[in-house]
Design a protein around this nucleic acid. Structure first.
Lengths: 253, 253
DNA sequence: CGCAATATTGACCATCATCAATTGGCGTGG
DNA sequence: CCACGCCAATTGATGATGGTCAATATTGCG
């Protein structure tokens, strides 16, 4: 049972407690039977650890496993030839940022850790076998990728049609709700793993301008932002500034 | 057999020849058995016609059918409360822009015709019944929505990190390849269904600025753009200006 | 032929990028 | 425990890209 548990500092195959994240995440978007939950818990996983800035999956890769964020925080991004970067999603524990690799061979973007992060790798083979036995899970996974796409769309209108203040307020609103969803935002306060530079690359702005807008939001008493920690002080007003409407997150619970 | 064929100018339920588009599209992204192809052809459909500017599906709708573009050209877009619009995808015959409604109840964006367009509507019920019988089709549909998301991602880096010249050149490059793919771009010339205003809303720019950049491209002899017709004169140079790398379209086969 | 939608052009200016310098937090080696 | 060094955050100065407003010119079409 324990034979492989501690051979390697950054890789093991036993059930980590974080495995529950996956069940938790999928339950947040659909209903699961007890059997399905158990099957998820029994998936074989290999766990690896990453430092901030390290790539977990890289553009051009042809993955044979999907990764599941267990702990930490990850981003999905694309680069232009000259180094300009666009971040298109943030991911929290329970997310599977490259679930699409089940059907799309070549990764068209990268996934990187934004803070010390643990990720579990589940062979495509095991997932296919699982979804073959449990159509409910197949639909849950599909639904998950569809919500992903919905978030991309919302992000697009932000980058394309919102001004800097709206974009930043909107992103903070989105983060609060998503962190709440995984119980990481008690009292409307959460640790933010993104630097202002990361925010800039996510929003299509410069780091300097992000900083200036954040100063405005703080000056106006809407938020607090110190030491990678954000508190929302005026939730209502922040939503107004960000033209925020949570519908697109499709959070059932 | 023909009893309902012509009662109504814009709605009928017989097999239109365009029904083949769907098979064609899905075959372009996966392998289908003869049985699966036949099952697709037998799906019940209601056909409706739309004028330029008309909505085919609207944000907030709770669809009970999916639409299939038979003929024409459609866009998917979102609006901000004050009317700003972001277009996030263009769709050609064979596409099902709201396939996601199978799993996501409420539409978070709209679909509109960009020119006179015919769309077929297929009840969710029929699609579910079909994918229940043919898991291969279930995966084909899933794959289709994943490719959708990949195109959103490519669009995002454009809006977020490319300047106006790059964005516009890139979009023209993409259009040329996509039209070539359906034999609609002989001699690197094609009819463009989008107005400059549509382009602006797709690229996160103003119509005025789109116009100015187009003037530049014409002045430099890269393209011609008259009467909704575009010709690419210097394909190589246009790709350079747009930092265009067709790889991301290859994944669509 | 005439309306209505698009495209084009000019004038002006706001937002946001760039460049550069300074400050502050924090981990590490001495 | 402190100094050094690094990275992120902050601030200032300057200017370019691209937006807005408004006037014309074209083009499609009935």
């Amino acid at each position: 049972m324990q034979q492989h548990a501690t051979h390697h500092a950054t890789s093991y195959t036993e059930h980590p407690p974080e495995r529950l994240h996956l069940v938790h995440k999928l339950r947040s978007i659909t209903d699961l039977t007890a059997e399905e939950r158990q099957a998820l818990m029994d998936l074989p996983m290999t766990v690896r650890s990453y430092a901030r800035g390290q790539d977990i999956v890289r553009e051009g890769d042809i993955p044979s496993e999907c990764c599941l964020i267990l702990d930490g925080f990850a981003s999905r991004y694309k680069l232009l030839p000259d180094g300009r970067r666009q971040i298109m999603a943030f991911h929290t524990p329970g997310d599977m940022p490259d679930l699409q690799s089940l059907h799309i061979r070549v990764m068209d973007h990268s996934v990187a850790a934004m803070m010390p992060t643990k990720a579990a790798f589940i062979p495509h083979k095991s997932i296919r076998e699982l979804t073959g036995r449990f159509p409910g899970l197949l639909h849950a996974f599909w639904r998950d990728t569809l919500i992903d796409a919905a978030i991309f769309r919302e992000w697009m209108i932000g980058i394309g049609r919102r001004d800097a203040h709206e974009r930043i307020a909107h992103l903070i609103c989105e983060m609060l709700l998503r962190f709440r969803g995984v119980d990481l935002a008690p009292e409307d306060t959460f640790k933010i793993p993104a630097t202002q530079n990361d925010m800039a690359d996510a929003l299509g702005l410069s780091n300097v301008h992000v900083n200036r807008v954040l100063m405005d939001l703080r000056r106006d008493g809407l938020i607090t932002w110190t030491n990678h920690t954000v508190s929302i002080l005026k939730w209502e007003e922040l939503q107004v500034r960000g033209l925020f409407d949570a519908t697109y997150l499709h959070q059932v619970h």
